[in-house]
């Protein structure tokens, strides 16, 4: 049976408590894109270690004296997100292989657009030093200027271009 989603304000309150717990216990907030970066760095380092060490981007994360990029806080946290999301889906009866999209778009196009969107998010998160979770949400909670700027830039550009991509969603 498919159950309903939680009241968004209640969910936001709980999400805020999780974020507060992260800040209170570990002194840092939540994140997601950092783990994707760790996976990329670890993969490049595994496939072409010389290239990774020479690169000015990967170089600061790999090489002698550096821990494995996968043994990091953010990777463990994101592993937790996978587990937590799965548990929630299991409890609420939402485990299902399915694709979602607007009514006017085919599943294959949806996959292509999802991958393009993911790539853009990956690139943008590097410039902004974090994504919606790490830069915007956590940044706002700790009152970082960057957090508010990133949040406004994400949603501002989203609203400005939404009209042109409406066929994807409505």
């Amino acid at each position: 049976m498919k159950t309903k989603y939680m009241n968004p304000y209640l969910a936001g309150f709980f999400l805020g408590l999780v974020l507060l717990a992260a800040i209170f216990i570990t002194g840092r907030g939540l994140g997601a894109s950092g783990a994707i970066k760790s996976i990329v760095v670890a993969t490049v380092d595994g496939v072409a270690p010389a290239h990774a060490e020479q690169s000015s981007f990967y170089g600061s994360y790999v090489g002698a004296g550096q821990d494995n990029p996968l043994k990091s806080w953010i990777v463990f946290e994101v592993a937790g997100v996978l587990i937590g999301g799965f548990l929630s889906g299991l409890i609420s009866g939402r485990l299902k292989f399915v694709s979602e999209g607007g009514p006017r778009i085919s599943v294959k196009s949806r996959w292509i657009f999802a991958a393009i969107g993911g790539a853009l998010f990956g690139i943008g998160a590097q410039f902004a030093r974090g994504c919606t979770s790490g830069a915007a949400l956590t940044g706002m909670a700790v009152l970082s200027t960057a957090g508010f700027i990133t949040m406004m830039a994400i949603f501002g550009s989203g609203y400005m271009i939404a009209y042109f991509f409406r066929k994807l969603w409505i």
């Binding site: 998010f121 690139i123 943008g124 410039f127 030093r129 919606t132 830069a135 830039a153 994400i154 501002g156």
Partner: peptide, 21 residues
């Protein structure tokens, strides 16, 4: 970089429908 990155992420959000988390 925060502004440019945010704008790129806005595109990613609309086109992809998700954010990383």
């Amino acid at each position: 970089p925060a502004i440019v990155g945010g704008v790129i992420m806005g595109f990613g959000f609309i086109i992809g429908g998700y954010c990383p988390g």
